[in-house]
Amino acid sequence: MSAIAPERQATGADALGAPAPSRPARAAGWASYAGYGVVVLVLALFAVVSPVFTDPSNLASIINQAAVTAIAGMGLAVVIIVGGDDVVEGGIDLSVGATAAVAGSVTAVLTTAGLAPVLAILAALGTTLALGAVNGAAVGLGLRPLLATLATMGIATSLDLVISQNMKIALDGQPFTWLRDAGGLGVSGAVVVLVVVAGVLIWAFHRTRLGVNAYAVGQNPTAARVAGLNPGRYRFASYLVSSGLAGVAGILLASRLSAAVPGIGTQILLDIILVAYMSTVFSRRLVITIGGTLLAALFVTALSNGMTLSGIASQWVGAVKGALILAVLTVVVLRSKAGSR
């Protein structure tokens, strides 16, 4: 499939669930909605099996839980968009999970030490941005993102241990309870953060020149350079965005759990990668999109939630997620074959 033209209007609209405007269809008509079809089907199934599933409070808690994966996933999506979506040579950030864990630990430790929560949060975000800068600099020097972020993943995991001394550190107090609990409007602070982050990123990547440029840099760096862009700068920025958002996600996660839990980074990493790559199913041109990542995060969370409510053992959730990635990828590969004919 020709992934040269950056996806612009269409994705934003697709991802938000609006009907796509009439435009020359690339993939077969039915296939481009297969992703949505699967989502609707699975959700409908859960709604039938478990009456609690569609309960407004349950739906609210799904969105609340999805915030962490969604925000970190969108950060990873930015890296993949800008770095190219080739998985071995292209953009990838394996350190997002560990970075999120570091952010949680830093926030919890500093708050416990008596620092003002705002300062603790700023320090946590500063730490994650520093990790992102290391990633960006290493990639800028020519190291493959897979390896650079593998190394920083080790570094961040160790930092998390050093900071938390491998102990659970309680995190309570005002801004964190606001992030965790539903407020007056029935939404928690985490959802507000999610909406703001998603709104800004979707606008920036699917409505602006910056977004078009970012896709161009990822899909054809040489052409982008010829056209006057500086791919190196975009790549560096993408790792900062990814780490920063991972930091935000980590703080949300620690707030939700009321504690920074050591070693949680590896647990959430796979989910984050899953939702970022899954976003391609929601895109007509089979590219990673921000809106698609948001949808995928909501779907994956709903899936775990629905399986739990239906009484399926938690051990199966991992298997289903793995099968899900495979199904998604198979669809993508089959569609891209059909599209290139």
Partner: peptide, 17 residues
């Protein structure tokens, strides 16, 4: 990889794995 199948060998596409 799905997104850069060899449709345009002429263009200086992103490198293959």
């Amino acid at each position: 990889s799905p997104v850069q199948a060899p449709v345009n060998p002429g263009a200086p596409a992103a490198p293959e794995p």
